[in-house]
Amino acid sequence: MTVNHTPARSQTGSVALIRNWPVTFLSAGLLPLLLALGFWQLDRADEKAQILATIDARLSAQPKNPSELTAVEPFIPVRLMGFYTGELFYLDNRTRDGQVGYEVLQVFVSGGKRWLVNRGWVPAGEDRAQVPAVAWPLAAKWITGFLHPADAEGPAAPMDMEFETGAGVEPERLQRIQAVAADLLDRLELEQPDWTIRLSADSDTALRTGWQFVNGEPARHRGYAFQWFAMAAALCILWLIAASNIPAVLKKNNYKRGNGS
């Protein structure tokens, strides 16, 4: 009596394609996670690109006097004439190209209205107890820049220390601004206490600007996405090698075809 074992061999062959089930289950769980992280980074890149496009569109508009705006919005370009006062503030722990320094905020008076202007960045000196001296013109000046929320500069905390600029002015050094502090805002009597004016690089009273509009450029998120997808691909290759017999089966089938069997 002849017994046909072909189905059994076929079933055994299909099961034998996987030789390490724990690694297979682990890979099956990790692969969707890696792919999801990659697509999430691509979504983040698109989101940042849209934000930057909106900012570029706003900054390309003609600057206006902020007092004439019907709606105050971030990144609206402004231009106004006036003069700086000696009310000077140093926003601490701000970096440019990895170097620690300060962003300099100064009150600017235009048409009898007071604005808090972020003039840009200066590097910190070797002696952290002494902030760098910053000059400003005494005559009236035109300034150009754009509106920026004060709370985006960070919350306020004048430090309990005295600092010297070496120019006869004793500024306050702030860790953050969060609409500056309530008592400081009352003292400054600003026209728009919730907003600052960040100077443009071409404004002649600007320090080093280099404003970062978003936290992370789209290209960086695309790079992260590529890394996640590369890890997913590497996981598939490692699973094929470490947990399956597929390479061996394919090699065997190719050998049989090559020998005409």
Rank of each mutant, 00 (worst) to 15 (best):
A232I: 08
V15T: 13
W239Y: 10
R187S: 08
A139R: 11
S67V: 01
F75M: 07
F39S: 12
L17W: 06
L185T: 06
W142S: 13
Y84L: 09
T165Y: 01
A124W: 02
F83P: 00
A45N: 04
A124I: 00
L88M: 15
Q50Y: 12
A232P: 08
N118A: 02
C236P: 00
D204F: 10
M81N: 11
S244F: 07
S110L: 02
A233V: 15
N259E: 06
L240K: 03
A156N: 11
A232V: 07
D97A: 15
S60W: 02
A219N: 04
P63C: 03
T24C: 12
A150F: 03
M161Q: 13
L138K: 14
G112M: 06
P77T: 02
G166V: 11
R128I: 06
R19P: 03
E217F: 07
Q175D: 06
A150W: 03
I177H: 01
T165I: 09
S67F: 00
G166I: 05
A225C: 11
P137N: 15
D97C: 03
R173T: 06
T24R: 04
G13S: 15
G168M: 04
R58I: 04
P247E: 12
M231Y: 11
D97R: 15
A181P: 11
R187T: 07
E170N: 05
G13N: 10
G38Y: 05
V131Y: 00
N118E: 07
G120T: 07
A167T: 09
L184T: 14
L138S: 14
C236T: 08
H5K: 12
L52N: 04
K256R: 15
D43T: 13
L33G: 05
M161I: 09
A182E: 08
L188S: 01
W40D: 00
Q106P: 10
Y90N: 02
P7Q: 13
E126L: 14
P66L: 00
G112Q: 09
F39R: 04
N20A: 09
D97I: 07
F213E: 04
G260M: 04
D194S: 14
P63Y: 07
I241N: 13
I237D: 03
A248F: 06
G145P: 14
P171T: 01
E73A: 14
P7D: 14
Q192M: 12
C236K: 03
S67P: 00
F89G: 03
V72P: 05
A36R: 10
V107A: 08
R128V: 06
T70G: 12
R208Q: 14
K252L: 08
F83V: 08
E126S: 11
T205P: 09
M231E: 02
K64H: 07
E191T: 02
P247M: 15
P193K: 02
L31Q: 04
N65C: 06
D46H: 10
E217L: 11
L35P: 00
D204A: 15
Q11L: 15
